[in-house]
Each structure stands twice: as C-alpha cells, then as structure tokens.
C-alpha cells in the first residue's frame, strides 16, 4: 500500500509551515538577544560586536551614500567581466571536453585537480601580468569561476541521455540544430548550475583581490573601514554583500532548478 498514511498519525500532527515560521522567528530573536547582550557586555574590544541598532544606522548611511554605489558598481562590473570571461571560456572548454572523449582523457584531470585549489594565491601573478588596476581583479575572478563552470558543463554534456541525441539524428537535424535544439536545452541545468557555482567563486576571487590591493570597489571599502576600525560600517557592507550574493545565487538556482526541485 504505497502513498498511504497512518490516519492516527495525521490527527495529532501540528501544521508544518506555521511551526517552521515560529521556530525561525524564535531563532532570530535568540540570536539578536545574544548579540545585543554580547555587545552590551563589554567583554570585547570596543565595537567589535556593535549593537544591531548601530549596524542598522550604518546600513542606512550606506544606503544614501553615492560613493558607496559607485564602489558597488565598480565591484559588480569587475565580477560581471570576470564571469563573462571565465564563464565564456569555461563553457567553450567544457563543451570541447564533454564532446570529445579524447580531449577529456587528455586534459580534464588537470582541471579537476586544479579546481579545488586556492585561487587567491595567484593574485601576485595576476598583478604582474595585468597591473594593480581592475584588470588583475577581473583576471582573478575569471580564473576562479573558469574551473567549476568548465567541469560542470563537461559533465552535463556527458550526461545527456543518448536517446535524445539519436532522436535528433533520426530527424536529420544539422549540427547547429543539434546544438540549439538538443544539446543546449538538455544541458540547461548543468550549465546554470555551473554558472551559479562560478558566480559565487567569482565574487570571492574578485573582492578578495580588492581587499588585498586596490583603490576602488567594495573590497577596498571594507579594508578602509577596517583600517579606521569602523566596525558598524564593515558589518553593514558585509551584510549588503552577503545579501546580494545569496539573492543572486537563489535566483540562478531557481531558474536552473525548475524541473528538479528535489535537488538539495
């Protein structure tokens, strides 16, 4: 008797979503209370754990600060370029590796092993190659996002159900038609998933580079706040950054996972 539920069990079960919301609110309240207590306790250096009110005020100040938006745009442009370059190369290389068993055997292992290495250590090299300006940050971001995108596109291409390819061939589709009507739609999910992963590491690569050496961008602003010990401002910027990153990740994830909600 599949899909059967126990009548007696159902009767006592509390309604799910309301309880979850209540727990979430409770957790947030507890965290806020602990945070405020820690902030008021005086156990930490001045302002290391600032009151949330102060952080809120810093957020409000940021929100009306034109300078902040300029730096934000600088960072976003860098991340965008990094994603375009690294992602474009990643998709191209991934398609080549996924399409050819020979190339995959010859080169994919190097990508696989280079993928999970810290990319920020290449920053000195990037500075030598591309200078101290935005180009070196873009390069580091591109380097970061190239690997996950290439690997996930290659894997996605291999996972296409062979019967779909046979169907395409049986209708005498041209190579272009095959790519546009069979390969790409079938690979939508792995490609978007790769872009999602790539986007995350592109942000990290680019902004970490900014915090190391730059004169513009959110990373630069964070280090400035650090230098003058303006903790509320630093928290505010990190919150904005996290919110943007998580929202973008959600957005791409939702777009990618229309057919596979059960993932994660």
């Amino acid at each position: 008797m599949p899909a059967a539920r126990d009548l007696s069990g159902v009767a006592g079960a509390p309604s799910g979503s309301g309880r979850v919301a209540a727990i979430r609110i409770a957790i947030i309240l507890v965290v806020v209370a602990l945070w405020e207590a820690a902030s008021a306790s005086g156990w930490f250096y001045r302002d290391v754990i600032p009151s949330l009110l102060t952080v809120g005020r810093a957020l409000a100040v940021l929100a009306v600060n034109r300078d902040f938006y300029w730096h934000l745009v600088v960072s976003l442009m860098e991340v965008g370029q990094a994603l375009a370059i690294g992602g474009g190369l990643g998709i191209a290389i991934g398609l080549a590796l996924g399409g050819s068993r020979f190339l995959s055997r010859a080169f994919e292992r190097y990508l696989y092993y280079l993928g999970p290495t810290p990319k920020i250590i290449f920053f000195p090299v990037m500075i030598m190659w591309f200078g101290v300006g935005p180009a070196s940050k873009v390069a580091l971001g591109a380097l970061s996002c190239f690997f996950p995108i290439a690997l996930s596109v290659a894997a996605g291409m291999r996972q296409i159900d062979p019967v779909l390819i046979r169907v395409g061939r049986s209708f005498h589709a041209s190579p272009m038609q095959m790519a546009a009507k069979i390969h790409l739609p079938a690979m939508r999910e792995p490609i978007l998933n790769g872009v999602r992963l790539g986007f995350g590491v592109a942000i990290i690569g680019t902004l970490l580079a900014e915090t190391k050496l730059s004169n513009a961008g959110i990373g630069y602003l964070i280090m400035q706040a650090y230098a003058v010990f303006d903790m509320p401002r630093m928290y505010a910027m990190l919150i904005v950054l996290f919110a943007l990153a998580i929202a973008a990740n959600e957005l791409v994830g939702r777009y990618a996972g229309v057919h596979a909600v059960s993932g994660s």
Binding site: M1, A3, A4, R5, D6, L7, V10
Partner: peptide, 12 residues
Amino acid sequence: KRFDTPDGAVTA
C-alpha cells in the same frame, strides 16, 4: 487498520 490515501480512507 485504516489508511488515509489521496483517494480517501481505505480499510486495509
């Protein structure tokens, strides 16, 4: 024993 199914309660 009775079960609740999408098609209503079933006496198993």
